[in-house]
Design a protein around this nucleic acid. Structure first.
Length: 362
DNA sequence: AAGACGGGGTA
DNA sequence: TACCCAGTCTT
């Protein structure tokens, strides 16, 4: 039996039923593909359901304020996806008459749609026979056909694209692409795949040669950069101060408390004496709470985060000029990094701090 | 080609 | 802890 025949047979038994599958709604398919980039189904499901309920159509998404879209995305990560989704929706309404482009080539032009997502939408929604190659597909193809090219290189990507074009079912591209993705996610898993009951047994190169854990070939390991964040929750008559993050750094378009970053670890006693800190909050204030150091691991960064609560007695110009003044209990209405959302929730429950008045309690 | 970009699950 | 995940964009 052919690879694609085995695959579709497996899919008819084990394939997942998902709300965006075979729904006949290109908009839903598009949204789901963007949400699921580098994100597991279990993690993205609730976000998808909430997103399409809040923004039911391309027009609704295009008309929505970016803030609302970002808020809906809060906690999902890779926030550029949300901004691109919003931008693409406006593009579709303004330049495409409100209809999603129906070809791989045109879809690829939209911001946030790369080769994988364009192929996925083109095949799932419009049945165009193009590959949709994600991490699952690289893994399945590498193992079954014994491909040693690395997906991390340009030549490797091309090799996988060519191979996939050859072995796919051109009559049922939508089923084939869904099937190979599900097969990678459920059967041909990254770690120790469960090869005993696998229908590809006998056909699979990696299984025959015991190379399951060596394929696909992997690339370089990544370096992690440490960063030290000191967030200042400055209180003034029931209000505090926040700002919208801009620029190319992490958390673009999310809100945060005034932030002072240091290259090295700085202990709280030293930090509150630092010039930078005193310039921000002024001299006439009291540091009432200092949190423990929270550690957050990103793919390329290791963040060490501490929160300071400062009671202001006068209003420093630096805060007034560069930050938005908002009610303290209104902060959770803004889209914020997940670490700040956690802080807000914990602080409300009185759980976050173990030191106060700048002195350690234990 | 390499780096940046999140957050969560798994061995 | 280390790796990986329904990737894309910028440099």
């Amino acid at each position: 039996m052919l690879f694609s025949e085995l695959l579709l047979e497996w899919f008819s038994v084990h394939g997942r039923q998902l709300p965006w599958r075979n729904c006949g709604n290109p908009y839903h398919i598009w949204v789901s593909e963007v949400i699921l980039q580098q994100t597991r189904v279990s993690q993205g499901m609730d976000y998808f359901l909430r997103f399409v309920e809040q923004f039911p159509t391309v027009e609704a998404l295009a008309a929505a304020p970016l803030d609302a879209v970002m808020k809906s995305w809060q906690g999902l990560g890779y926030y550029t996806r949300a901004r691109n989704l919003h931008k693409a929706a406006q593009l579709i309404v303004n330049d495409y008459g409100g209809e999603l482009p129906n070809s791989y080539k045109e879809l690829l032009k939209l911001p946030g749609l790369g080769p994988y997502a364009a192929g996925a939408v083109a095949s799932f929604a419009f049945h165009e026979p193009v590959p949709a190659i994600d991490g699952n597909v690289y893994r399945v193809l590498a193992r079954v056909f014994g491909v040693f090219d690395s997906p991390g290189t340009g030549a490797g990507k091309k090799a996988f694209y060519t191979l996939c074009s050859e072995v796919m079912d051109h009559e049922n591209p939508h089923l084939f692409n869904q099937a190979i993705i599900d097969f990678g996610a459920l059967q041909c898993t990254p770690g120790r795949p469960d090869c005993a009951p696998c229908p590809m047994r006998g056909l699979c190169y990696a299984e025959a040669n015991g190379l399951q854990t060596s394929l696909p070939t992997k690339e370089r390991e990544l370096k992690v950069r440490p960063r030290y964040f000191h967030f200042i929750m400055a209180r003034w008559r029931g209000d505090t101060f926040i700002e919208l993050r801009q620029g190319k750094d992490i958390w673009h378009s999310l809100y945060q408390f005034p932030l002072i970053e240091t290259k090295e670890r700085v202990e709280p006693e030293d930090f509150t004496q630092s010039e930078e800190f005193q310039e921000l909050v002024g001299i006439d204030c009291t540091v009432t709470h200092i949190s423990e150091e929270k550690r957050q691991l990103l793919s390329h960064q290791e963040l060490f985060i501490r929160f300071y609560i400062v009671e202001l007695h006068t209003l420093p110009y630096a805060l007034l000029q560069d930050y938005q003044r908002v009610p303290i209990d209104g902060v959770d209405g803004y889209q914020v990094p997940i670490t700040i959302a956690n802080y807000l929730a914990a602080e409300e429950a009185g759980e976050y701090f173990r030191c106060s008045s700048g002195k350690m309690e234990d």
